[in-house]
Amino acid sequence: MNASVNWTGYKTIVRKEVVRILRIWAQTVVPPAITMTLYFIVFGNLIGRRIGEMGGFDYMQFIVPGLIMMSVITSSYGNMVSSFFGAKFGRHIEELLISPLPNWVILAGYVTGALARGMMVGAVVMVISLFFTRVEVQHPLVMVSVLLLTSIVFAMAGMVNAIFANKFDDIAIVPTFILTPLTYLGGVFYSISLLPDFWQKISAFNPILYMVNGFRYGILGVSDVPIAWAYAIILAFGVILASLCLWLLHRGIGMRS
């Protein structure tokens, strides 16, 4: 297949995804904005005042990177899993499966769509945070790269979930029982230095800890983990998930008989 066919196909998938996100904006962009506003008010403002400083920052400032990252992770994952599973359930994924597009273009198109929603939501939450506190971005390149890479990783994780899901219940299991606990325990609301040694060691196995701290380093310049480790973990998950997605698409699991 020539590159122009792939490029047009890729743009078409991305455009379709973005149109979908904007068409159902009340489901895609508004809920995280409301949830994060509540987090800022309740945790940051009301409770945060009593907590005082964390990691050398005002508590409200400390949770800003974590809350942005949490909304980006949830939105990227949620977009991919709902859109891809919806296409599978409604059988319109067949439009792509019978087309000449190679699997990597299909994956790239859907991941970019999920990335677009992640970035939209991330930008909205960042703007909301400005109503509550002020932060100076310390390492813009680190902030942007960690955010983009994390969004891509969770978009691909969403595709794996969507491929194996057989009913709508199946796409709620992973976010409820795995993603949410790992995110809450991933240092969004606290520094792991507050934990006893044993729990610090356990926390080191949580990949979201590295993503949240990598992003926090980008914004505030502080991190509970070495930044190189954060990149290594994100990239490793990225490579593993990309390979898994391509293999699943190639085998047509859940899509081709």
Partner: peptide, 23 residues
């Protein structure tokens, strides 16, 4: 069996399909 997104409009469905073929 019907296999298009029933929440999309006919024009959108056809134009998107064309895009998948590089048109």
């Amino acid at each position: 069996e019907l296999n298009f997104n029933q929440f999309e409009k006919p024009l959108e469905i056809i134009v998107n399909q064309a895009g998948y073929y590089g048109i």
